[in-house]
Design a protein around this nucleic acid. Sequence first.
DNA 1: TAGATTGTTAATCGATTAACAATC
DNA 2: TAGATTGTTAATCGATTAACAATC
Lengths: 219, 219
Amino acid sequence: MVTKQKISFAPSIRRLPQYLHVIRQFESTGGDYISGTLIANELNLEPIQVRKDLAITGIIGKPKRGYPAGELIKAIEHYLGWDISHKAIVVGAGNLGSALMGYQEFRNNGLDIVAGFDSDPTKIGSRIHGVQIHNIDSLDEIVAQIKPEIAILTVPSPFAQSSCESIVKSGIKSIWNFTNTKLKVPDYVSVQREDLSSGYAMLSVMMQQLAKNLDSIEN
Amino acid sequence: MVTKQKISFAPSIRRLPQYLHVIRQFESTGGDYISGTLIANELNLEPIQVRKDLAITGIIGKPKRGYPAGELIKAIEHYLGWDISHKAIVVGAGNLGSALMGYQEFRNNGLDIVAGFDSDPTKIGSRIHGVQIHNIDSLDEIVAQIKPEIAILTVPSPFAQSSCESIVKSGIKSIWNFTNTKLKVPDYVSVQREDLSSGYAMLSVMMQQLAKNLDSIEN
DNA sequence: TAGATTGTTAATCGATTAACAATC
DNA sequence: TAGATTGTTAATCGATTAACAATC
């Protein structure tokens, strides 16, 4: 049986795209070797953390000089699988779905959104950011044709579970879930949850600490 | 000096909204006492983790019965500050900004989006999901009037830093950053970064493990 | 009552940070 | 060369999980 696995080094993996961004910028301005210290300064992190994180990609740096920027970019991209193209569909072509279809950053990193799906007749047949929108009823058929690896789920939450089931039935095994619904999926399907509420919770607690700090200064 | 602080219990705080969602649903169907075990089952977590997390809100449960649902909801809401209204503005009324303005989940949790800002003349003066869109040049003025606590930043990344500076100058101290830009802000301003790339990185690594597992089964 | 569930205390696990020799 | 930076090994820190007495 394929057991649901935890991803090791999750915190490091989540930081890699930030590094990639900084290193690409560095390279595009003609930079040659980039040090962990420089990356750390740019992102308000500790140099040792950057070095440890980069090590998981297999890159070897040069003492005193840093890491060869070009190779480092390739190493991160390869580690993340961003050096090859991944076809994806967007299920739910509302505002959020539309935003994601137009997100250039994804395309730069191998995520190729090839189709959108919606139930709204005024959207079906149109193109959003160049992506053709299909009737959600034709999901099975079109997935069979174009064989995408990823489904990005951006429907309103009441439709999340049922849409998810259509996606699973169509044969897609990776779902990026932007709804606030905990999806029930078979073991062989993996779900990455993108939970805006959790970010809002963090923001809220930060705000309370901010208020507390101001109080303690004033009094 | 107000030093930039780390939030303790961040992982627990991030899970609280999920619990809240489950408990509200439970209560709305007439549920009385809800056990940590039930919540854990619903979210594929360990009961002990749920109990530990709930404990930080100060809730006291009853052995054998669980937690009083109504009180538990109030405790979580209060811990997060979601029991009082927080005025927010959205800077950048593109697709993502529009999606957030229409996100009912936020309104249910005290986040009151009272104005949007954009530089596009066709948007200025209109309403998106009921929210009035203003010229970004009038940010200062309107913030002075309505005194929002939070700015949600959804401009294209080339404008992120400059928009951020306008926000800071206007006096707002909490920024929810949906751009992929690392913002440079004074010490007394806190930024919550919502980084879609990090989610995509996790998804990508999950997909690789999926592929590896299938391989090992086939061979 | 019996047994499920709580809260507490301790053990484990993994991530971050520190220390430092190696080196370009 | 001198010194900044690497990679490795160890120490610390915090989060998760386990064990279990208390109890409704």
